[in-house]
Amino acid sequence: MTALTTALRDPSATLPRRVSPRATVSQTLTLAWRATMKMRRNFEQMFDVTIQPLLFTAMFAGIFGGAISGSVSDYLPIIIPGLVGQTVMTACVATGVQLREDMDKGVFDRFKVLPIARIAPLAGPMVADMLRYLIAGTLTFLTGMVIGYRPGGGVFGVVAAILFGVFAGWSLAWIFTWFGTIGRTAQGVQATSLMIMFPLTFISNAFVPTETMPSWLRAFAEVNPVSHVISALRDLANDGQVTADLGWAVLGLAVIIAIFAPLSVRSFNRKM
């Protein structure tokens, strides 16, 4: 048997009484690394941002294209940014569900006794999931281009749209993260999240113009932050333009963060 060469930590040394902001960032990134390792090892957990965008893009374009815009190719500029919003929303739901699953695992007990920032085990996966939103957004655009979508915004517009999609995903994820921190089981979190995710996604301008909706639905669709996000995505990708919708979208997302981030952090801390 080999003896350990490093000395025991000295209990008489002066130790920091709280975690510094720098340490918090480093711990968050370490836990983000852990989350990406998990993604790599459980590839089926990535289906929602890999296979699903491919499938949904081809499917929705084909199903709705003729009915809504007269032809698939005319529909693509509407549906592709809409689908970016939709796949990112789906990926957000998984963020909350996986957080819940994670908190039930033994390794979380260890996180609790480690001298780390209480927020790091929550922030780590949220940072890592930005990678998932990035994959989802990129694949949706790529699939669109394969079936004939030619974004007028050019490379810059598309890249800007993808990055904005990632930001939107991260902001919206706070809603589902909150569900993750208050739900008792992963299944429960999944069910609640889908109940919120579907109206937010479908009562919006993601798939169809809002003009034909009954007035009460339309009223919701027009204030729905997801609608503004999708309009902003369209303006960026199709025209390469930053419009007022981007401003409204950022404002809406900021409100979501302002409400759900403190709620999540509080209920998460109670469990840490």
Partner: peptide, 26 residues
């Protein structure tokens, strides 16, 4: 001073609290 206490402590519980998705070294 919970943070100081945590720096001086190693805890091993009744149930293994390691990450299932990682290797032993990781």
């Amino acid at each position: 001073e919970p943070h100081v206490v945590r720096q001086l402590l190693g805890v091993t519980g009744q149930y293994a609290s390691v990450d299932e998705n990682l290797t032993a070294t990781e």
